[in-house]
């Protein structure tokens, strides 16, 4: 198996790592870089647990060949708190949006991609943003509320 050096920016830091052409981004993050905050619930793009932000967009990292990330800006859950918890993390904690927590990193990444791009999302935009993230615990009610509340917090901060 041949290895290629993959260079990209991960949570603001430049990264160089040897990967094989069939490696998926999720596995490189979890196994090689030991950033296990990104979860794997299906490996087929059907659950969103592996969601990361690639060049500003939420993507299922289990469907992204690692080498596709060449020169990309990748953000994972580990990079979301910048010194202090991100407003999304605050509202997820305070409004009951976390139960087992397995969907949580992916949920937060999807929501962050939304709020980075759209500070005033409607309910249906929030739903569209997280519809690819399966949560079997919460019924999504409190997650939606947390995203709305975080949007408001962020607007206040601006």
């Amino acid at each position: 198996m041949s290895f290629t050096t993959l260079k990209f920016t991960l949570n603001g830091e430049p990264i160089e790592i040897a990967v094989s052409p069939s490696d998926m981004l999720v596995d490189v993050l979890r196994d090689k870089l030991e950033l296990t905050g990104t979860k794997k619930g299906c490996g087929k793009g059907e659950c969103g647990a592996c969601t990361v932000i690639m060049n500003g967009k939420a993507v299922a990292s289990c469907l992204v060949p690692a080498l596709k990330a060449a020169d990309a800006e990748i953000e994972t859950i580990e990079g979301v708190a910048n010194g202090a918890a991100h407003p999304l993390q605050e509202t997820f904690m305070d409004l009951g949006a976390v139960q087992c927590g397995f969907c949580t990193p992916g949920m937060i990444m999807s929501s962050k991609a939304l709020l980075d791009d759209n500070p005033q999302p409607t309910k249906s935009e929030i739903r569209e943003a997280i519809a690819g993230n399966i949560c079997r615990c919460t019924g999504y009610v409190k997650i939606e509320e947390a995203v709305e509340a975080a949007a408001e917090k962020l607007r206040e901060q601006r």
Partner: peptide
């Protein structure tokens, strides 16, 4: 199609 994470790629 699919979900946003899929439509984005």
């Amino acid at each position: 199609v699919g979900s946003l994470q899929i439509r984005n790629i």
